[in-house]
Computed example of a mutant assay.
Amino acid sequence: MSTATLDPCSILIVDDMEENLVALEAVLGPLHQHLVRARSGEEALKAMLRQDFAVVLLDVLMPGMDGFETAANMKRLDQTKDVPIILVTGVEAGSDYAYRGYALGVADFLTKPIDPWVLRTKVNVFLDLHRKNRQLTARPAAENVAGLAEISARLADVELLLHNQPGGDTSGLADRIAALERAVRHLWARTDAY
Rank of each mutant, 00 (worst) to 15 (best):
A189G: 03
D175M: 01
N73S: 08
V56M: 11
W117K: 13
R176E: 01
L28E: 13
D128H: 00
D7K: 12
K112Q: 15
V14C: 07
S40T: 00
A26V: 01
M48K: 04
I177F: 00
I114C: 13
T170C: 02
E19F: 07
Y97V: 04
G172S: 07
L173Y: 02
E25H: 09
D16I: 06
G67N: 06
D82Q: 08
N73V: 12
V106W: 05
S171K: 12
V106I: 14
L24W: 10
H34E: 14
M1F: 09
P63A: 08
L35Q: 06
Y97F: 01
A47H: 13
D96E: 15
L180E: 00
A174W: 01
A149I: 08
G64Q: 13
A103L: 04
D157G: 00
G168A: 08
G67S: 11
A179T: 00
G147L: 12
L136E: 11
L173T: 07
L161V: 05
E19H: 09
I86E: 07
A23M: 12
R37V: 10
A44P: 07
A193Y: 06
D128Q: 03
L136S: 03
L104V: 11
I114V: 14
P166S: 14
G101C: 09
D78W: 12
L57C: 14
D115Y: 05
D16H: 01
D59I: 13
G172A: 10
T170S: 03
E92I: 07
R134G: 10
N164M: 03
S2Y: 06
Q33L: 11
A98G: 04
M48V: 00
A193I: 05
K132F: 15
V123C: 04
A142G: 15
V158L: 08
A142C: 14
S95V: 03
G168V: 03
R131M: 08
D52G: 01
M74N: 03
M74D: 03
L129Y: 07
I86S: 07
V91M: 08
E92P: 05
L160M: 14
E181D: 05
P116G: 12
H32W: 11
A107C: 10
T111V: 15
V123R: 07
I85K: 01
A93H: 08
V125Y: 13
R190Q: 06
A93D: 09
A71R: 08
I85F: 01
A98I: 04
A26Y: 04
G64K: 13
D15A: 11
T89L: 08
K122T: 14
R154M: 09
V118C: 12
L49V: 09
R154E: 03
L160H: 10
H130A: 01
Q51P: 04
L110Y: 07
A44D: 11
W188P: 00
R37D: 14
N144M: 15
A146Y: 15
M48L: 04
D128L: 02
G172I: 02
A72C: 06
V91C: 03
A4H: 09
A142N: 14
R100W: 00
H34T: 15
